[in-house]
Amino acid sequence: MNQVPSFTSIFQSASYTRSYLMKKYELQSINNSSEKAYHNSYTFVYYIQIGHHYFQQGMKSPVPIKPVLLFYGLSHWLKAALLTVDPDYPATTHVLAHGLSTRKRKKQGYQFLSDEIRLQKNGLFPYLSEKLFHVKQLAGDKRTMRQLLFGLPEMQTIMRVLLKDEGLIHLKRMDNGKFSVTKKDLSQWDGPLSSWVRHLSHDAKGELTWEETCNEVQLTFLPRPVNDSLSFRTSVDFELFAPKNRSYIINLPELLVHYALLYSLSMICRYEAEWWGELIHSFSADDLPIITEYLDVSQTKCPWLLNRLFL
């Protein structure tokens, strides 16, 4: 199988980028597609390349400053993605802020997993959610770091080892093309099995049928939901996952989960130096291995998700 080229390599060409944007605009019946694609092509390339530099430096940097660089890298890439659906971005100053806020932290007893982000009415986060992913977010809604991390396939192992729990169920692909999950894995779902399937059906982007046996549930997708949605998550090796219980249904596409996590960590780096320094040097809590594992995951998963989004 041919390897998919990296979006950071392809979008070094302004001429290719211009034709890419024009096709995007034409599919959305945007007026003056050619003119707007020409106008945005270099801005798009700059977003991609500056984001690439931030991300590359973040990957090489030590943990104390890594989140800031990764966050700015991802932010630039997402701004480029916005130009594919909104040729006038940024049309107002309302979309320039982060779109998230963090609560005031207490110096004593603070735990990263219990920390929250609050969704704001304006800013990049809600604008991305609505324009790029067609999901309306409610201002004032909160998400904990625990919820966000439990919703990432690549974080399941470390969360299971350290916290004795998982947030996602692995949907195992069978030889007949169906997916299976054991009833034991579904034991944390609050309600009958039919309600779990019904929840997935709403977000399957196609037909979903199911069969129940003594020990497992078998699912058939037509087609398989290969694109990440609000319910399904796909790992970098294309394994499929779904929420284990309702508390981990967070109504966020995975790219926005990474944006929120990196935003929170970057804010800690910049404004909570005492707690951040103590965490890194004391090795006294589960927060450190979870954060460092997440940073490793994000370095692979964010470019992988963007590659799927762009190409």
Rank of each mutant, 00 (worst) to 15 (best):
I290M: 02
S19I: 05
S298Y: 06
Y25M: 00
S180F: 15
Q28D: 12
Y127M: 06
N2G: 12
T8Q: 11
L78E: 05
Q111R: 12
H202C: 15
T213W: 05
H258P: 07
Y89L: 05
Y263M: 09
F310Y: 10
L162Q: 00
Y127S: 03
H170E: 10
L222I: 14
V217D: 03
K178T: 15
D115Y: 04
L311R: 13
L119V: 09
T17P: 01
L152K: 06
H281W: 00
T92D: 15
K24A: 08
L27F: 12
F179C: 12
L82R: 02
F112P: 03
L295N: 10
G109P: 06
Q147C: 02
L252N: 04
F310N: 11
G109I: 07
S33A: 12
I290P: 00
Q3F: 12
G58I: 07
A242I: 00
K205M: 15
Q12V: 15
I249Q: 08
P243Q: 01
V4P: 13
W77F: 09
Y259T: 03
E207T: 15
Q28N: 15
Y294D: 10
W77C: 08
G167D: 01
F7T: 13
T43G: 03
S75N: 11
H98Y: 09
I291M: 03
P90E: 11
L138H: 14
S114E: 13
S129A: 13
K66G: 01
T292Q: 10
V161M: 06
G140I: 03
L309F: 12
N215E: 13
D86G: 10
A204E: 10
G177T: 08
A97I: 12
W276N: 05
P90S: 09
Y46P: 05
A242Y: 02
F232Y: 11
G167A: 02
L265S: 02
S194R: 04
P5A: 13
L152E: 08
W276Q: 06
E212H: 09
P303Y: 01
N227W: 15
Y72H: 07
M174A: 13
Q299R: 14
E274P: 12
S229D: 07
L148Y: 02
H98D: 10
V85W: 02
F71Y: 03
P126L: 07
K205A: 15
A139Q: 11
A242P: 05
G51W: 00
F283A: 05
W275T: 08
L168R: 01
I249K: 02
D165L: 00
S13R: 08
H202P: 10
Q49T: 02
E272T: 08
Y54M: 03
T157M: 03
L186W: 07
E239P: 10
Y110L: 12
N227M: 15
E212V: 04
Q49R: 00
S19Y: 06
F150Y: 10
Y42S: 09
Y46A: 05
K106I: 08
L230K: 05
G191P: 01
D203Y: 14
P90M: 10
A273S: 14
L96M: 12
T234E: 11
L113Q: 05
S284I: 04
V4S: 15
T102A: 12
Q28V: 09
K36P: 00
K106C: 11
K104V: 09
